[in-house]
Computed example of a mutant assay.
Amino acid sequence: MLGSGLISHRPGLVKVLQVTGIAFSVALLCGLVVSYMIYRLAKAEESQQLEKLYEIVEIPLLGDDKEFLEDDGQDASSHLPPEKEKELGKFISSVIKTKRKESILKKKLKGKQTFSNNKIIQMEDL
């Protein structure tokens, strides 16, 4: 037994210390598990919010950049801490780039489809 040699004349105290140590260890482990679960839930919530933001963000057309920059005066991210503001700025920039690429690809596909449809129609006329 732990400490039974040190406190041989008080066996009840040894049992109390053992139970207290075990209870403290169990409580510490439970606290760590709960903290980890809260951390994971917070990360999942953050990623869901970023996905919603990705879906909501509308990119300006290339000709409308001036209007977009003028409307930037009332930025909601100005209330964020600087490190979060930088992360949000990077995320929004990547979303805008991705959306523009998607838009360009859609236009190219439409152009190819229109071109191939016109060729098919021309071949049918012959």
Rank of each mutant, 00 (worst) to 15 (best):
M1G: 13
M1K: 05
L2V: 13
G3V: 02
G3T: 02
G3K: 01
S4D: 06
G5L: 14
I7E: 00
I7D: 01
R10E: 05
P11W: 00
G12E: 08
L13E: 06
L13Q: 12
V14A: 01
K15G: 02
K15F: 11
V16R: 07
V16Q: 04
V16W: 06
L17Q: 01
Q18K: 15
Q18Y: 03
V19H: 08
V19F: 08
G21N: 12
I22K: 09
I22H: 13
A23P: 00
F24Q: 14
F24K: 10
V26G: 02
V26Q: 03
A27E: 04
A27W: 05
L28M: 05
C30L: 15
C30P: 00
C30R: 12
C30T: 11
L32W: 09
L32V: 07
L32R: 05
V34A: 10
V34P: 00
V34H: 06
S35K: 11
S35F: 11
Y39S: 14
R40C: 04
L41D: 06
A42S: 05
E45L: 13
E46Q: 09
E46N: 14
E46M: 07
S47W: 15
S47P: 00
S47Q: 08
Q48L: 10
Q48W: 15
Q48R: 06
Q49T: 08
E51P: 01
K52G: 02
L53P: 00
L53H: 02
L53Q: 02
E55G: 11
V57T: 04
E58H: 08
I59M: 10
P60I: 01
L61V: 09
K66W: 12
K66T: 10
E67S: 09
F68E: 03
L69C: 11
D71E: 12
D72M: 05
G73M: 08
G73R: 15
D75A: 02
A76L: 14
S77A: 11
S77E: 13
L80D: 00
P81Q: 03
E83D: 15
E83F: 04
E83T: 09
K84D: 12
E85P: 00
L88F: 06
L88D: 01
G89V: 02
I92F: 01
S94D: 07
V95N: 01
I96K: 02
I96A: 02
K97F: 10
K97W: 10
T98L: 06
K99P: 01
R100L: 05
K101N: 15
S103N: 12
S103V: 14
S103I: 06
I104R: 10
I104C: 10
L105I: 15
L105F: 04
L105P: 00
K106G: 03
K106S: 08
K108F: 08
K108N: 12
K108E: 07
G111S: 03
T114N: 14
F115Q: 15
F115G: 07
S116W: 11
N117D: 13
N117E: 11
N118P: 01
K119I: 14
K119H: 05
K119W: 03
Q122H: 05
M123H: 15
E124V: 09
D125V: 13
D125N: 08
L126F: 10
L126T: 12
L126H: 05
L126Y: 09
L126G: 04
